[in-house]
Amino acid sequence: MQVRLFALLQDRAGWSARELPLPADSCLSALDVWNRLNLGPWSASLRVAINQNLVEPQQRVHPGDELAFLPPFTGG
């Protein structure tokens, strides 16, 4: 599985993408992955995308997924 960080999160962590081995029978959620990566306390303002679709942080991740943690959007 690939984990991607954007904007402020990328600067804080010092990396933008990382491969994370995930057993086929893993029951980890996106939030579990966040906690394992020591990225700090979870904030309700953050959003999660799996394979570029917004999902709830409790959504389960699978091997091969692209998991992204997204700070609040500020376009336009």
Partner: peptide, 21 residues
Amino acid sequence: KHEAPFWKREWHVDGSSTWIT
């Protein structure tokens, strides 16, 4: 502005930067 994944970072004249939240 609120639903599409864009992020703005301000670059200041002293070379520092701030992500807009």
